[in-house]
Design a protein around this nucleic acid. Structure first.
Length: 189
DNA sequence: AGTTCGATCGCCT
DNA sequence: GGCGATCGAACTG
């Protein structure tokens, strides 16, 4: 498998969000195929963490593309994003669901409440738990490691479906959620 | 310094 | 479908 290079991420956020579908995330002995993403834009998007300018938490989103933005939410969960756009331009993509590939039994041990393979990584906080991605990974370069995004050796064709983003209240009607149509590993059909 | 509230999940009915 | 858990970031004063 070939890791995605920096130029892949140095594009408009929506393009990156769509292009990430079908790509593989590997961390340690676990990996999964991206089946659902959401774009968070730098301007005109009140739901984005960058909506009110730079803060200590969101600073990596203003940095170079191809880095992980990991944040802590609801007192217990981590969520993984990838930074898009050139440096100094905000924009990132939330990874919302994975189709587990490697390390399925390990993922089950990490997420005992999941009673089927479909439930292992079908949500942004579920997949970070399944792949053991923590707040300490905030800012890591995903063109290198330990978290690697890559192109699968064989990519089967699929249709992309678009919808509103999930779980937000501001800018809630923007069509910025992208997922593989009819895929059973997405968080919502 | 105090308050609000969230890019969620899992358990309950 | 509804709600409680749980806590830090960011806003208010």
């Amino acid at each position: 498998m070939r890791p995605l290079d920096r130029s892949f991420y140095m594009r408009p956020t929506i393009e990156v969000a769509r292009a990430l579908l079908g790509k593989i995330i590997t961390h340690g002995d676990t990996s999964g195929r991206i089946v659902e993403t959401e774009a968070y834009l730098g301007s005109g998007d009140l739901a984005a963490h960058t909506a009110r300018g730079p803060t200590p938490r969101n600073r990596v989103i203003f940095g170079p593309p191809g880095h992980a933005y990991v944040y802590f939410i609801y007192g217990m969960y981590e969520c993984l994003n990838v930074v898009a756009e050139p440096a100094d331009v905000a924009g990132c993509v939330l990874i919302r669901a994975l189709q587990p590939i490697d390390g399925v039994s390990l993922m089950h041990r990490r997420r005992p409440s999941a009673h089927s393979i479909e439930d292992l990584a079908n949500g942004p906080a579920k997949l970070t738990r399944a792949l053991r991605i923590k707040l300490r990974h905030n800012g890591v370069d995903v063109t290198r490691g330990p978290i690697v995004f890559s192109v699968p050796d064989e990519e089967e064709p699929f249709e992309i479906a678009v919808s509103k983003r999930i779980g937000i209240t501001k800018s809630a009607d923007l069509p910025l959620r992208f997922y593989i149509k009819d895929n059973r590993f997405v968080s919502r059909g």
